[in-house]
Amino acid sequence: MKPHPASRDVAIAAVALIVVLAIPLFHRSPAFEDFIIRLSAMALFATSLNLLVGNTGMVSFGHGMFYGLGAYAFALMMQMTDLSLPVAAVLAVSITTLASFCVGAICVRLSTDYFAFITLAFQMLFYSVVISWQSLTGGDQGLRGGIPRREIFGFELSSQLHLYQFCSVVAVLGLLALRHVSTSPLGQTLRMIRDNEDRASFLGVVLWRARLLAFTIAGAFAGLGGVLAALFVSGAYPELADWPNSGQAIFAVMLGGINSFLGPALGAAILLALNDAVTRFTEYYGLVLGIVILAFAVGFRRGVLDFLRLAWPRSSK
């Protein structure tokens, strides 16, 4: 008897989490721990975007708005209130969810091209607010007051090891939740809309409602990634909400594979590793990244996991 897909996903997530948490027990590497913390935030960000791009066929150029909003909402509440870290994190994700619902209610009824650009317009508007409202956001200097009360369930997140463990757990649980959404009837409905929206509409699917739900869920998980990013940088900075950050997520999806659930997470790992490697030797990171993206587009014509999924049956014959 084959295991139920949900049980298999939970087992894979548990094994992955055990491995990640066990690594520091055998060898401590601050650089590796920093990488995993950053990857935790980026993987949630990119995978949530792929719920729109890969599952629904909606390309959002402004998804970084919700990533940045999650970071700023969390950092502001930690700096300006007496809320505990878990409560502030939940409220930050709730604010991001509400914002994504409001933005999505305007965007999802538009055609594909207009949808992409109106999301970018919303992100640019949010970025302008972040830069202009200096008394609240710190302007182009960002929120530099740090994150006080960095404790959750007895773990002091000012410790790099504890932050590494916390971010790993949140990322795995978040990805597992997104996986559940992707394999649920909602996920199947979204893929049907992507493949043939006329047929989906004929079968009784309310297109704008399903798209709005997907947009809202994607924004919520992007906000959760922003919370992890704020914990890592101990604040929030305009770069987290700027449009190039949305481009980073799109690149991660393209590199890893649109049609594979773990593709965006792999793409995020490749992107971060490439950034770390290239910046050691040259400041022209954008040029190198463009060449890599071009090589994937021309050579593989798809992301890494998508390419392997198609190539594996041929190699096994």
Rank of each mutant, 00 (worst) to 15 (best):
N55M: 13
M58N: 08
V59A: 12
V59Y: 11
S60P: 05
G62F: 15
H63F: 11
F66W: 11
F66D: 04
F66E: 05
G68Q: 12
G68W: 15
Y72K: 01
Y72H: 04
A73Y: 11
F74A: 00
A75P: 08
M80V: 03
M80E: 06
D82M: 08
S84T: 15
P86T: 08
V87N: 08
A89N: 04
S94K: 02
S94R: 01
T97K: 01
L98I: 14
L98M: 10
L98H: 01
A99V: 14
A99W: 14
F101K: 03
C102T: 13
C102Q: 09
C102H: 06
G104P: 07
G104C: 08
G104A: 08
L110D: 06
S111A: 12
S111D: 12
T112G: 05
Y114C: 02
F115V: 03
A116W: 10
A116N: 06
I118G: 00
I118T: 11
I118M: 11
L120S: 00
L120K: 01
L120D: 02
F122Q: 02
Q123A: 06
L125R: 00
L125V: 10
L125P: 00
F126M: 05
F126T: 00
Y127T: 00
Y127C: 00
W133R: 02
Q134I: 03
S135F: 09
S135C: 07
L136K: 02
T137I: 03
G138M: 11
G139H: 03
D140E: 13
D140M: 10
D140T: 13
D140R: 09
Q141D: 14
Q141P: 01
G142V: 13
L143R: 01
L143F: 06
G145I: 14
G146E: 11
G146H: 12
I147F: 13
P148W: 04
R149N: 12
R150I: 03
E151T: 07
I152N: 04
I152M: 10
F153R: 00
F153Q: 01
G154D: 09
L157I: 05
S158R: 09
S159W: 13
Q160F: 13
Q160M: 12
L161E: 10
H162M: 12
H162F: 08
F166Y: 15
C167G: 09
V169P: 07
V169I: 15
V169R: 07
V170I: 15
V170G: 01
V170E: 06
V170L: 05
A171H: 10
A171R: 04
L173A: 13
L173V: 04
A177D: 08
A177Y: 01
L178E: 08
H180I: 09
H180Q: 10
V181F: 06
V181I: 14
S182K: 07
T183Q: 11
